[in-house]
Design a protein around this nucleic acid. Structure first.
Lengths: 146, 146
DNA sequence: GCTGATCGTAACAGAAACGGTTACGACTGG
DNA sequence: CCAGTCGTAACCGTTTCTGTTACGATCAGC
């Protein structure tokens, strides 16, 4: 499977908004944000739409519109972001139902469900320990051009 | 993104082989295994091929051929299986390179790489704590038909 | 009001991945 | 020799992902 980059995009967007806010630009348009991520503004708006539903950002419409953070960057964990963009399980069960006449086919799904839930929880704990502010700070320590 | 079911298939295959071995059937064909997983034998052979490269199973060719476990089920962790089938990172970085003229675009990839590595390691720790024998035992406790 | 900037969202497209299927040559115990 | 099985390539339909275009909805400021 190729993992998707939505968490990366969302965190990038939030980190950039956090830096801009610190520089006095509280409201940003999706075009401005897209310029940093180097993607299409619609991609950014889709991502921001998810973040807004989760209460992490707000949007303003009409003239002078744009997006702004709804919380301090230090109060947004990566787990908040992960959930906001619709976290999916790490591992999938069988694409088609296994043979229930076999004892393994019958019992393995509940057994694996437990294991996968534990793995999901481990990732959640890891993401819960970092905030957008942490990522921004770490980002600013890597400023050497390749 | 929808996660794939390869870990599920591989663990199912190994658990079934472990149970069959305990019942005296040490060598199994991909057809027999596929009947339990309820999928195509080629899917099973692809999975078993990965497991063989990792040294978890062996294959015999010719007449009376088939597959057998190369290690005791209690000596195969789910992390072994996860790595055998080609573990991929949980989260992807940007699909296209971000704007390196923006401080966030420049520094966020190394920052997120660290975070994602920590998340991968957390999953690895979780999977390392369970063996195929554990999963089989847990599977056999779930034998009520739905 | 009007206007222009921006959001919000649907529709679409190309690429890749996934599970599945068919086919067929390679191998080997009996 | 030969029947049974592995090993693997080729192909298919579906889904997902990223990206693009398009266009109506909204509204601050004039």
């Amino acid at each position: 499977m190729a993992a998707n980059s939505r968490l990366t995009i969302a965190v990038h967007v939030l980190a950039w908004m956090a830096l801009a806010k610190r520089r006095g630009r509280e409201i940003m348009t999706s075009d401005e944000i897209a310029a940093s991520v180097a993607t299409n503004p619609v991609i950014v708006r889709r991502s921001l739409g998810d973040l807004r539903e989760a209460g992490l950002v707000e949007s303003r419409r009409g003239a002078g519109a744009g997006w702004l953070l709804a919380r301090e960057p230090a109060a947004i964990t990566l787990l908040d972001v992960h959930r906001a963009i619709g976290a999916e399980p790490l591992f999938a069960l069988h694409a088609t139902e296994p043979n229930l006449d076999c004892p393994v086919g019958l019992g393995i799904r509940p057994a694996l469900t437990e294991v996968y839930a534990a793995a999901d929880a481990a990732v959640a704990r890891e993401l819960a320990g970092r905030t957008v502010a942490d990522v921004l700070a770490e980002t600013l320590t890597h400023q050497e051009r390749p």
